[in-house]
Amino acid sequence: MEHYHMNLTLKVWRQKNSQASGNFDTHSVKNISSEMSFLEMFDVLNEQLIESGKEPIAFDHDCREGICGACSMYIDGQPHGPWQKNTTCQLHMRAFKDGDTIVVEPWRSKAFPVIKDLVVDRGAFDRIIQAGGYISVNTGNAVDANALPIDKKKADDAFDAASCIGCGACVATCKNGSAMLFVSAKVSQLALLPQGEPERQSRVLNMVAQMDKEGFGNCTNTYACEAECPKGISVANIARMNREYLGASLGSED
C-alpha cells in the first residue's frame, strides 16, 4: 500500500449545547498521513485547536475498532463516510486525497438531539430496548445450554441480526429518519431463537410502540439503511419485523 500525505479543509458543525444554534467552522489540517484513521486526523485537528486556545471539537468515540458504536459522524454526505460496511473510527485517510474539502455533520434526527458539536443523544435506542428488547430470564433460571438445539441457519441469522452496534447510522441516513433497521435487528434476533418465543408478540408490539413514541420517521423501503449499516444488517430483518407485527397485532386480544 502506497503511503502519502495530504492537506485538507474541514467544514465541521459546531454547536455549544443542545439549546444553542450551531454553525459550520472551517479548519485546515496539514500533512495528514494516509495511514491515519479519520478520528486520528480529528485528534490532530483538536490538538491544533487547543494549541491556538480554542475549544476542541466534541465527538463521540470509544473503542476505535468499529464495535462499540459510539462514533457517529456524517462525513461528506454519508454516515461514517465514503466506505461501505464501516464505522467512522475505521475509516482511514487513504479514502481521501490531497486538497479535499470534507464536510462533517452530526447525525440529524428529531429523536437524536445534538448535545454538543458532533455529539448526539441516542438514548431513544436504549428506551426502545427497555420496551422489550430482551428475554425475561432471571439469573440462575437457565437450563443447560445444550438442552435446546437450535437450527444452525436460524442461529446464524440471529447472530447476523445481533451484530448491530446501535450506532444509529441507519436513522442518520434514512431520508425519513426511521429506526426500523435497528428495531428490526433486535426483534429478529429474538424472534429467530426459541428462547425468544414466549414474549415474541408483546415484544414486537411494545418495541414498535416505543419507536413511534420517540419521533422516528416511517420506513419507505429505500434500503439506504442496509447500504450504510457498518455491520451490513439486512432489510430482510425489517420484513421479518413487519411479519411479526402483523401476526402479533392481528392475534392480539386488546
Partner: peptide, 22 residues
Amino acid sequence: AAIIDQCVAQGVPFAREYGGLL
C-alpha cells in the same frame, strides 16, 4: 458452566454446529 447456560437463555447467539448444539 452456568454462565453459558444463562447467556444462551438470554438469546446470546453463540456459534453452533449443524446439529444445533454449541
